[in-house]
């Protein structure tokens, strides 16, 4: 009987493992634009140290196109993107425009700090 128990528990364990992998995969691969209660928000909004760090990152990576209030490209201080859309745009760029993907240059934390900076500076630099 113990052998039978073991035999029946193996598929159960495998199914459980698959379910776990599936759940983790779904969580990892979940779309960025999910339901309202799934919305990703910038965790650094309003935090002075993060805003200062975001300003430095902006000066090192963004300013050549976006200037102090949209020098040549769109004015990031006036964009109406949600936090999520902002993150997605910086990570993956805008295909067909000069906006490149920064996914390997900037971390998510870096991008959130830039977001915190531009939101805290509505009139631009």
């Amino acid at each position: 009987m113990p052998a039978i128990v073991r035999a029946s528990s193996r598929p159960a364990a495998a199914v459980s493992l698959l379910l776990l992998i599936g759940a983790v995969s779904l969580w990892v691969l979940r779309p960025l634009t999910g339901r309202a209660d799934d919305t990703v928000t910038d965790p650094y909004l309003g935090q002075p140290a993060a805003i200062d760090a975001g300003e430095q990152i902006y000066r090192e990576h963004c300013i050549i196109c976006h200037g102090r209030a949209g020098g040549r490209g769109p004015d990031l201080f006036a964009v109406t993107l949600t936090d999520e859309e902002f993150l997605d745009t910086v990570l993956h760029g805008r295909p067909g425009t000069v906006m490149p993907a920064f996914s390997t240059t900037l971390s998510r934390d870096d991008i959130w700090k830039v977001r915190a900076f531009v939101k805290a500076t509505p009139k631009g630099l």
Partner: peptide
């Protein structure tokens, strides 16, 4: 203005 290899090194912002 801080120089880091590979980062922008301008020290000026602009508006066209």
């Amino acid at each position: 203005l801080v120089y880091k290899p590979g980062d922008l090194y301008m020290g000026v912002d602009y508006q066209m």
